[in-house]
Amino acid sequence: MSDVSAESRGQRTLAFLNYLYLLLMMGVIALILTVALVFQYAYGELPCPLCLLERLAMFGVCFGIILTFRHGFSYQHTGVSLLFALILVIVAERQSLLDIYPRPGHAYIGSAIFGLHMPVWATIIGLVLLFTIIAKMAVIGGDRALERIGLAAFPVLARAGAIVSLYVILLLAINLVSAFLQCGFNECHTYGYQLLGGPTAPPAGGT
């Protein structure tokens, strides 16, 4: 009897740790995307097309987590998050290699944080996300616990997950409007917001 109860407690703990882990991961991504928006609007650093694709990949990772919080655990949701973490690494690494040698039309844009520019940070973020998901599977595991014990067993986590999920959806809506103002349905560039009458060509002597 006590063994059953201990096993049940263990499974509950594993399920709790899994949901907490996912919540923290989504919270960190939301923070990164918020900082990106602050840099865009407070410091006027417009995102390049590949930067926008990197933001989208981070939203893709959140998509898998949001589905888990909304519909419960599924390997499909984890798979979507893993796929977008991998896509983020591929896009960010390609952009790092694209701009690694400054030449007309290509150079790292924006501010460097701790000496690293955005594409390098995006590569690191993507690798950390991949490692985080893999570490969750390898260390916490507990998939059977997740199938048995739903999020309803942890009302505080469920509420926190819903709040962060809605915040991510709000961020996504802001990014959508922002991308529309910057690019319209045309090619994106970093000279200004096309739909607000910004320049459509680089300034003289600029890249």
């Binding site: 694709l53 989208l56 998509f63 909304r70 519909h71 999920s165 996504l172 959508l176 349905f185 994106c188």
Partner: peptide, 22 residues
């Protein structure tokens, strides 16, 4: 085209949140 991708990502996430998984 990037705006289109944002629109699709938003629709996917919003649909997922509203319970329309397919």
């Amino acid at each position: 085209m990037i705006t289109g991708i944002f629109i699709l990502m938003f629709l996917a996430t919003a649909s997922g949140w509203l319970g329309w998984r397919r």
